[in-house]
Protein backbone atom coordinates (compact mmCIF):
# COMPACT_ATOMS: atom_id res chain seq x y z
CA UNK A 1 0.00 0.00 0.00
CA UNK A 2 1.29 3.46 -0.86
CA UNK A 3 0.46 6.56 1.03
CA UNK A 4 1.34 10.17 0.56
CA UNK A 5 3.73 11.39 3.18
CA UNK A 6 2.20 13.75 5.68
CA UNK A 7 3.75 17.12 5.27
CA UNK A 8 3.79 19.85 7.86
CA UNK A 9 3.95 23.45 6.81
CA UNK A 10 6.03 25.72 8.94
CA UNK A 11 5.25 28.91 7.13
CA UNK A 12 2.27 29.68 4.96
CA UNK A 13 4.25 32.38 3.23
CA UNK A 14 6.92 30.10 1.87
CA UNK A 15 6.08 28.02 -1.20
CA UNK A 16 6.61 24.30 -0.69
CA UNK A 17 6.98 21.52 -3.20
CA UNK A 18 3.63 20.04 -4.15
CA UNK A 19 2.92 16.45 -3.09
CA UNK A 20 3.33 15.40 -6.71
CA UNK A 21 4.88 17.08 -9.73
CA UNK A 22 1.53 17.20 -11.55
CA UNK A 23 -0.56 18.11 -8.52
CA UNK A 24 -1.57 21.59 -9.65
CA UNK A 25 -2.28 20.52 -13.21
CA UNK A 26 -4.48 17.72 -11.86
CA UNK A 27 -6.20 20.10 -9.46
CA UNK A 28 -7.18 22.37 -12.35
CA UNK A 29 -8.78 19.45 -14.22
CA UNK A 30 -10.68 18.59 -11.03
CA UNK A 31 -11.82 22.16 -10.65
CA UNK A 32 -12.95 22.30 -14.26
CA UNK A 33 -14.83 19.04 -13.80
CA UNK A 34 -16.61 20.16 -10.64
CA UNK A 35 -17.57 23.45 -12.31
CA UNK A 36 -18.83 21.65 -15.40
CA UNK A 37 -20.81 19.05 -13.51
CA UNK A 38 -22.42 21.60 -11.18
CA UNK A 39 -23.56 23.45 -14.28
CA UNK A 40 -24.88 20.26 -15.88
CA UNK A 41 -26.85 19.55 -12.71
CA UNK A 42 -28.46 22.99 -12.81
CA UNK A 43 -29.32 22.54 -16.50
CA UNK A 44 -30.87 19.16 -15.68
CA UNK A 45 -32.91 20.61 -12.83
CA UNK A 46 -34.03 23.37 -15.17
CA UNK A 47 -35.33 20.74 -17.59
CA UNK A 48 -32.74 21.48 -20.26
CA UNK A 49 -31.15 18.03 -20.28
CA UNK A 50 -33.13 14.95 -21.30
CA UNK A 51 -32.30 11.56 -19.83
CA UNK A 52 -29.98 11.80 -16.87
CA UNK A 53 -26.92 13.49 -15.46
CA UNK A 54 -24.27 11.35 -13.77
CA UNK A 55 -21.50 13.17 -11.98
CA UNK A 56 -18.23 12.20 -10.33
CA UNK A 57 -18.39 14.43 -7.26
CA UNK A 58 -15.97 13.05 -4.71
CA UNK A 59 -14.18 10.88 -7.29
CA UNK A 60 -12.37 13.57 -9.27
CA UNK A 61 -8.96 12.91 -7.72
CA UNK A 62 -8.99 9.23 -8.66
CA UNK A 63 -10.43 9.96 -12.08
CA UNK A 64 -8.02 12.73 -13.04
CA UNK A 65 -5.10 10.46 -12.20
CA UNK A 66 -6.55 7.87 -14.57
CA UNK A 67 -6.43 10.23 -17.53
CA UNK A 68 -3.34 12.22 -16.69
CA UNK A 69 -0.61 9.63 -17.19
CA UNK A 70 -1.87 8.23 -20.47
CA UNK A 71 0.03 9.18 -23.60
CA UNK A 72 -0.66 9.29 -27.30
CA UNK A 73 -1.41 5.74 -28.40
CA UNK A 74 -2.68 4.63 -25.00
CA UNK A 75 -6.24 3.39 -24.52
CA UNK A 76 -8.67 4.86 -22.00
CA UNK A 77 -11.92 3.20 -21.01
CA UNK A 78 -13.64 5.67 -18.68
CA UNK A 79 -16.84 4.88 -16.84
CA UNK A 80 -19.73 6.79 -15.35
CA UNK A 81 -17.89 9.14 -13.00
CA UNK A 82 -14.78 9.90 -15.00
CA UNK A 83 -15.22 13.39 -16.35
CA UNK A 84 -11.95 14.51 -14.76
CA UNK A 85 -10.09 11.64 -16.36
CA UNK A 86 -11.73 12.20 -19.73
CA UNK A 87 -10.72 15.87 -19.70
CA UNK A 88 -7.18 15.07 -18.63
CA UNK A 89 -7.02 12.46 -21.41
CA UNK A 90 -7.95 15.12 -23.94
CA UNK A 91 -11.70 15.05 -24.40
CA UNK A 92 -12.80 18.60 -25.26
CA UNK A 93 -15.57 20.13 -23.13
CA UNK A 94 -17.69 20.67 -26.20
CA UNK A 95 -18.02 16.88 -26.55
CA UNK A 96 -19.59 16.77 -23.11
CA UNK A 97 -22.01 19.62 -23.59
CA UNK A 98 -22.97 18.51 -27.09
CA UNK A 99 -23.76 15.02 -25.81
CA UNK A 100 -25.72 16.13 -22.75
CA UNK A 101 -27.61 18.79 -24.68
CA UNK A 102 -28.31 16.47 -27.63
CA UNK A 103 -26.48 18.37 -30.36
CA UNK A 104 -26.43 16.69 -33.75
CA UNK A 105 -22.79 17.74 -34.03
CA UNK A 106 -21.59 15.86 -30.96
CA UNK A 107 -19.70 12.59 -31.05
CA UNK A 108 -22.88 10.59 -30.45
CA UNK A 109 -25.14 12.78 -32.67
CA UNK A 110 -28.11 12.37 -30.35
CA UNK A 111 -28.02 8.61 -30.79
CA UNK A 112 -26.57 8.04 -27.35
CA UNK A 113 -26.31 10.36 -24.41
CA UNK A 114 -24.54 11.54 -21.30
CA UNK A 115 -21.66 9.35 -20.14
CA UNK A 116 -21.86 6.83 -23.02
CA UNK A 117 -19.89 9.07 -25.29
CA UNK A 118 -16.46 8.26 -26.62
CA UNK A 119 -14.05 8.61 -29.52
CA UNK A 120 -12.89 5.08 -30.32
CA UNK A 121 -10.66 6.36 -33.12
CA UNK A 122 -8.93 8.61 -30.60
CA UNK A 123 -8.58 5.72 -28.15
CA UNK A 124 -11.31 6.94 -25.79
CA UNK A 125 -13.70 3.99 -25.70
CA UNK A 126 -17.46 4.58 -25.56
CA UNK A 127 -18.77 2.70 -22.54
CA UNK A 128 -21.92 0.63 -22.57
CA UNK A 129 -24.10 0.56 -19.47
CA UNK A 130 -23.49 -3.11 -18.76
CA UNK A 131 -20.77 -2.95 -16.16
CA UNK A 132 -17.60 -4.94 -16.54
CA UNK A 133 -17.95 -5.14 -20.32
CA UNK A 134 -15.22 -2.59 -20.99
CA UNK A 135 -12.47 -4.60 -19.34
CA UNK A 136 -12.19 -7.28 -22.02
CA UNK A 137 -12.77 -4.73 -24.77
CA UNK A 138 -9.77 -2.79 -23.48
CA UNK A 139 -7.81 -6.04 -23.43
CA UNK A 140 -8.71 -6.51 -27.09
CA UNK A 141 -7.45 -3.06 -28.05
CA UNK A 142 -4.13 -3.87 -26.39
CA UNK A 143 -3.93 -7.27 -28.03
CA UNK A 144 -4.43 -5.55 -31.39
CA UNK A 145 -1.61 -3.13 -30.68
CA UNK A 146 0.64 -6.07 -29.86
CA UNK A 147 -0.37 -7.80 -33.10
CA UNK A 148 0.45 -4.61 -34.99
CA UNK A 149 3.90 -4.42 -33.42
CA UNK A 150 3.28 -1.22 -31.47
CA UNK A 151 5.42 -0.60 -28.42
CA UNK A 152 5.26 1.33 -25.17
CA UNK A 153 1.47 1.46 -24.90
CA UNK A 154 -0.88 0.86 -21.98
CA UNK A 155 -4.63 0.71 -21.47
CA UNK A 156 -6.50 1.95 -18.44
CA UNK A 157 -10.04 0.86 -17.64
CA UNK A 158 -12.17 2.30 -14.84
CA UNK A 159 -14.68 0.38 -12.77
CA UNK A 160 -16.55 0.75 -9.52
CA UNK A 161 -17.01 -1.70 -6.70
CA UNK A 162 -20.50 -2.34 -8.08
CA UNK A 163 -19.19 -3.30 -11.50
CA UNK A 164 -16.55 -5.51 -9.89
CA UNK A 165 -19.29 -7.96 -8.94
CA UNK A 166 -20.31 -8.80 -12.51
CA UNK A 167 -19.33 -11.94 -14.37
CA UNK A 168 -18.14 -9.79 -17.24
CA UNK A 169 -15.62 -8.06 -14.96
CA UNK A 170 -14.31 -11.39 -13.70
CA UNK A 171 -13.91 -12.79 -17.21
CA UNK A 172 -12.24 -9.59 -18.36
CA UNK A 173 -9.71 -9.54 -15.51
CA UNK A 174 -8.85 -13.17 -16.03
CA UNK A 175 -8.35 -12.86 -19.76
CA UNK A 176 -6.24 -9.71 -19.24
CA UNK A 177 -3.87 -11.68 -17.05
CA UNK A 178 -3.86 -14.65 -19.42
CA UNK A 179 -2.94 -12.35 -22.30
CA UNK A 180 -0.47 -10.40 -20.11
CA UNK A 181 -1.50 -7.13 -21.71
CA UNK A 182 -0.28 -3.80 -20.27
CA UNK A 183 -3.55 -2.98 -18.51
CA UNK A 184 -4.32 -0.88 -15.46
CA UNK A 185 -7.74 -1.33 -13.88
CA UNK A 186 -8.71 1.42 -11.47
CA UNK A 187 -11.60 0.41 -9.24
CA UNK A 188 -13.23 3.13 -7.21
CA UNK A 189 -15.13 1.86 -4.22
CA UNK A 190 -17.57 4.71 -3.64
CA UNK A 191 -19.43 2.52 -1.17
CA UNK A 192 -22.74 2.39 -3.02
CA UNK A 193 -23.92 0.51 -6.08
CA UNK A 194 -26.84 2.84 -6.75
CA UNK A 195 -28.46 2.44 -3.29
CA UNK A 196 -26.84 -0.83 -2.21
CA UNK A 197 -24.08 -0.53 0.37
CA UNK A 198 -20.89 -2.60 0.44
CA UNK A 199 -22.26 -5.19 2.87
CA UNK A 200 -24.70 -6.43 0.23
CA UNK A 201 -22.21 -6.07 -2.64
CA UNK A 202 -19.37 -8.35 -1.61
CA UNK A 203 -18.15 -10.33 1.36
CA UNK A 204 -14.40 -10.41 0.93
CA UNK A 205 -12.17 -8.61 3.43
CA UNK A 206 -10.72 -6.17 0.91
CA UNK A 207 -11.40 -5.91 -2.82
CA UNK A 208 -7.71 -5.47 -3.55
CA UNK A 209 -7.14 -9.03 -2.30
CA UNK A 210 -8.72 -10.19 -5.53
CA UNK A 211 -5.71 -8.94 -7.48
CA UNK A 212 -3.59 -11.93 -6.59
CA UNK A 213 -6.37 -14.30 -7.59
CA UNK A 214 -6.55 -12.74 -11.03
CA UNK A 215 -2.78 -12.58 -11.52
CA UNK A 216 -2.72 -8.78 -11.15
CA UNK A 217 -0.56 -6.66 -8.90
CA UNK A 218 -2.82 -4.82 -6.47
CA UNK A 219 -2.62 -1.51 -4.66
CA UNK A 220 -4.96 0.29 -2.28
CA UNK A 221 -5.50 3.99 -2.35
CA UNK A 222 -7.12 6.78 -0.35
CA UNK A 223 -9.11 8.30 -3.20
CA UNK A 224 -9.66 11.56 -1.35
CA UNK A 225 -5.94 12.36 -1.44
CA UNK A 226 -4.94 13.76 -4.81
CA UNK A 227 -1.23 13.35 -4.16
CA UNK A 228 -1.74 9.68 -3.32
CA UNK A 229 -3.92 9.18 -6.40
CA UNK A 230 -1.22 10.63 -8.62
CA UNK A 231 1.49 8.57 -6.95
CA UNK A 232 -0.32 5.25 -6.95
CA UNK A 233 -2.07 5.41 -10.31
CA UNK A 234 0.92 7.07 -11.97
CA UNK A 235 3.16 4.29 -10.69
CA UNK A 236 0.70 1.61 -11.82
CA UNK A 237 0.68 3.06 -15.33
CA UNK A 238 4.46 3.15 -15.31
CA UNK A 239 4.69 -0.47 -14.17
CA UNK A 240 2.25 -1.65 -16.81
CA UNK A 241 4.15 0.24 -19.48
CA UNK A 242 7.37 -1.39 -18.30
CA UNK A 243 5.93 -4.85 -18.86
CA UNK A 244 4.91 -5.81 -15.34
CA UNK A 245 1.71 -7.85 -14.91
CA UNK A 246 -1.66 -6.09 -15.17
CA UNK A 247 -2.28 -3.64 -12.34
CA UNK A 248 -5.32 -3.29 -10.09
CA UNK A 249 -5.75 -0.15 -8.00
CA UNK A 250 -8.65 -0.03 -5.54
CA UNK A 251 -9.48 3.47 -4.35
CA UNK A 252 -11.77 4.27 -1.46
CA UNK A 253 -14.08 7.30 -1.59
CA UNK A 254 -17.71 8.18 -0.91
CA UNK A 255 -19.94 9.10 -3.83
CA UNK A 256 -20.93 12.68 -2.94
CA UNK A 257 -24.03 12.68 -5.12
CA UNK A 258 -26.88 10.41 -6.03
CA UNK A 259 -26.37 7.65 -8.56
CA UNK A 260 -27.71 10.20 -11.00
CA UNK A 261 -29.27 13.57 -10.41
CA UNK A 262 -32.71 11.98 -10.26
CA UNK A 263 -31.58 10.25 -7.04
CA UNK A 264 -31.51 12.14 -3.72
CA UNK A 265 -29.21 9.52 -2.14
CA UNK A 266 -31.30 9.54 1.03
CA UNK A 267 -30.04 6.03 1.76
CA UNK A 268 -26.49 7.27 2.47
CA UNK A 269 -26.13 7.02 6.24
CA UNK A 270 -24.91 9.80 8.50
CA UNK A 271 -22.40 7.38 9.93
CA UNK A 272 -20.72 6.76 6.59
CA UNK A 273 -20.59 10.48 5.88
CA UNK A 274 -18.29 10.83 8.90
CA UNK A 275 -15.75 8.31 7.61
CA UNK A 276 -12.32 9.53 6.42
CA UNK A 277 -13.09 8.34 2.88
CA UNK A 278 -16.12 10.63 2.82
CA UNK A 279 -13.93 13.74 2.52
CA UNK A 280 -14.39 15.86 -0.59
CA UNK A 281 -11.19 15.31 -2.58
CA UNK A 282 -11.44 18.75 -4.20
CA UNK A 283 -11.58 20.48 -0.83
CA UNK A 284 -8.75 18.34 0.48
CA UNK A 285 -6.61 19.22 -2.55
CA UNK A 286 -7.43 22.90 -2.20
CA UNK A 287 -6.54 22.77 1.49
CA UNK A 288 -3.20 21.22 0.56
CA UNK A 289 -2.59 24.03 -1.91
CA UNK A 290 -3.38 26.61 0.77
CA UNK A 291 -1.44 24.88 3.51
CA UNK A 292 1.64 24.48 1.35
CA UNK A 293 1.10 27.87 -0.23
CA UNK A 294 1.51 26.30 -3.63
CA UNK A 295 -0.30 29.20 -5.34
CA UNK A 296 -1.78 32.36 -3.92
CA UNK A 297 -5.46 33.13 -3.43
CA UNK A 298 -5.65 35.37 -6.47
CA UNK A 299 -4.38 32.59 -8.69
CA UNK A 300 -6.98 30.21 -7.31
CA UNK A 301 -9.66 32.78 -8.02
CA UNK A 302 -8.35 33.18 -11.55
CA UNK A 303 -8.46 29.41 -12.08
CA UNK A 304 -12.05 29.31 -10.89
CA UNK A 305 -13.03 32.12 -13.24
CA UNK A 306 -11.27 30.38 -16.10
CA UNK A 307 -13.13 27.13 -15.39
CA UNK A 308 -16.47 28.96 -15.35
CA UNK A 309 -15.64 30.73 -18.61
CA UNK A 310 -14.67 27.47 -20.34
CA UNK A 311 -17.84 25.75 -19.17
CA UNK A 312 -20.10 28.61 -20.15
CA UNK A 313 -18.51 28.81 -23.57
CA UNK A 314 -18.97 25.07 -24.17
CA UNK A 315 -22.59 25.17 -23.05
CA UNK A 316 -23.44 28.29 -25.04
CA UNK A 317 -21.90 26.78 -28.17
CA UNK A 318 -23.77 23.48 -27.83
CA UNK A 319 -27.05 25.23 -27.09
CA UNK A 320 -26.90 27.02 -30.44
CA UNK A 321 -26.40 23.81 -32.37
CA UNK A 322 -29.09 21.83 -34.17
CA UNK A 323 -30.83 18.86 -32.57
CA UNK A 324 -31.14 15.62 -34.54
CA UNK A 325 -34.22 15.39 -36.73
CA UNK A 326 -36.02 12.08 -37.14
CA UNK A 327 -36.89 12.62 -40.79
CA UNK A 328 -33.27 13.40 -41.68
CA UNK A 329 -31.77 10.64 -39.56
CA UNK A 330 -29.92 7.82 -41.26
CA UNK A 331 -31.78 4.85 -39.80
CA UNK A 332 -29.19 2.26 -40.73
CA UNK A 333 -27.22 0.34 -38.10
CA UNK A 334 -24.76 -1.07 -40.66
CA UNK A 335 -21.74 0.63 -42.16
CA UNK A 336 -22.47 -1.53 -45.22
CA UNK A 337 -25.59 0.34 -46.26
CA UNK A 338 -26.33 -2.13 -49.02
CA UNK A 339 -26.88 -4.77 -46.32
CA UNK A 340 -29.61 -2.83 -44.52
CA UNK A 341 -32.57 -5.08 -43.95
CA UNK A 342 -35.77 -3.99 -45.60
CA UNK A 343 -37.94 -6.77 -44.26
CA UNK A 344 -40.06 -4.34 -42.24
CA UNK A 345 -40.91 -2.12 -45.19
CA UNK A 346 -44.47 -2.30 -46.41
Amino acid sequence: MLQTAQRTVKSKKKKAAPPHGRFLEAFRWMLLTRTLEEKLVSLYRGGLITGGVYIGKGQEAVSVACGLFLQKGDIFAPLIRDQAGRSAFGEPLIDVTRTYLGSRLGPMRGRDGNIHRGHPRKNELAMISHLGAMISVTVGTLLAKRFKGEKNFVGLACIGEGGMQTGSFHEGMNIAAVEQVPLVVVATNNHYAYSTANDREFACHDLVDRAIGYGFEGYSLDGTDLGACLDVIGSAVKRARAGRPPQLVVASVLRLSGHGEHDDASYVTEEIKQQPFARDCLKVAEQTITNLNLVDAETLTEWRKDAVAQVEEAIAAAQKEPAPEADKEDWCAFSRRDLADHADET
Binding site: L125, S136, G140, E171, G172
Partner: peptide
Protein backbone atom coordinates in the same frame (compact mmCIF):
# COMPACT_ATOMS: atom_id res chain seq x y z
CA UNK B 1 -18.20 -12.71 -22.71
CA UNK B 2 -14.49 -11.84 -22.54
CA UNK B 3 -13.69 -13.69 -25.77
CA UNK B 4 -16.14 -11.55 -27.70
CA UNK B 5 -15.23 -8.42 -25.72
CA UNK B 6 -11.57 -8.93 -26.60
CA UNK B 7 -12.48 -9.46 -30.24
CA UNK B 8 -14.51 -6.23 -30.23
CA UNK B 9 -11.59 -4.26 -28.80
CA UNK B 10 -9.21 -5.74 -31.35
CA UNK B 11 -11.63 -4.97 -34.19
CA UNK B 12 -11.97 -1.35 -33.06
Amino acid sequence: DAIVGTAIGAAI
